Amino acid sequence: MFNWYKKVVFENYANFNGRARRSEYWYFTLFNLIFSVITMAIDKALNLEIGLNTVYGLAVFIPGLAVAFRRLHDIGKSGWLLVIIYLAMIICAAVMVGASLSALSGVASPEGFGIGVIIAGVVVFGLAIWLLVMFCTNGDVGENKYGPDPKADGSEDISQIGVE
């Protein structure tokens, strides 16, 4: 399992080409979460504001983005779709924050921005769910325009364990 993490971080650090199977993406995500929690705990124990967690986050940002691109490639989608989704989420989040700050500061009435905040929240939630579904979708069988099927190498996929 840890081999998937090592493959993403050390072998494919900034490789945005090709395809990544579900197990590669999700094991990287799992170990990334574990290491993030550990580094946050160390930072908290040492009372550091900018410490190991920040350094770790910066170190794995590029490989995390690259494996997400390759995961989308595995289902036949462009990795740039991820950038578009993230930009839409950032814009919607900015609308929600701006509306909240405007209402709190008295610049505008809270009622006037309520519908905008609700719409922005629904858009962010919908995009997050759609992205999650894409990351969980089984990859294209055989070669697609982004490269050969990563399952064709004969290695075992976690989704096939116990299936006959």
Rank of each mutant, 00 (worst) to 15 (best):
G64R: 04
G126W: 05
A66D: 09
I50C: 02
F135P: 02
L72S: 00
N144I: 02
R71Y: 00
D74V: 00
A94H: 09
L132S: 00
G121S: 08
N138F: 02
I75L: 00
V124W: 15
V97A: 15
V133C: 05
A59V: 09
T54N: 12
A108L: 08
G64H: 10
I50L: 11
S109E: 15
V117H: 04
E49D: 13
G142C: 10
L132G: 00
I90A: 12
G116M: 03
V83P: 06
A66C: 11
E49L: 10
A94S: 13
F61P: 05
L132N: 04
D140Y: 00
G106T: 10
E111P: 03
G79K: 07
K44P: 02
V95R: 03
V124I: 12
A93T: 13
I115A: 15
M96V: 05
N53W: 05
F113L: 07
E49P: 05
L82E: 01
G57K: 12
F135R: 03
G112E: 14
Y56H: 08
A59R: 05
E111V: 13
S105N: 09
M96A: 12
R71S: 00
D74P: 01
I90W: 12
G116V: 00
G126Q: 07
C92V: 06
E111H: 11
V60S: 11
E143M: 04
G121T: 05
L82C: 02
L131C: 03
G116A: 12
C92T: 09
I118K: 11
A45T: 11
A59E: 03
A128N: 15
C136A: 08
W80L: 10
L58C: 13
A68K: 04
V117E: 12
V97H: 05
D74T: 03
A68S: 15
I62C: 10
C136I: 00
V95Q: 03
I50F: 15
V123M: 13
V83R: 08
N53V: 12
Y86C: 08
G51S: 09
A94L: 13
G112C: 06
L72N: 00
A45P: 05
S102P: 02
R71I: 01
G142D: 08
L52W: 08
T54S: 12
L87I: 15
A99I: 05
G79M: 07
S100T: 11
H73S: 00
S102A: 14
F61A: 11
S102I: 04
I115D: 13
V67H: 04
L132H: 01
Y56P: 06
V60Q: 08
G51P: 12
I90E: 06
V55H: 07
I129C: 06
F125R: 01
A59C: 10
R70Q: 14
V123N: 06
P63D: 06
G57E: 10
G116C: 04
E111G: 12
N53Q: 13
P110T: 08
L52F: 11
M89K: 08
W130Q: 01
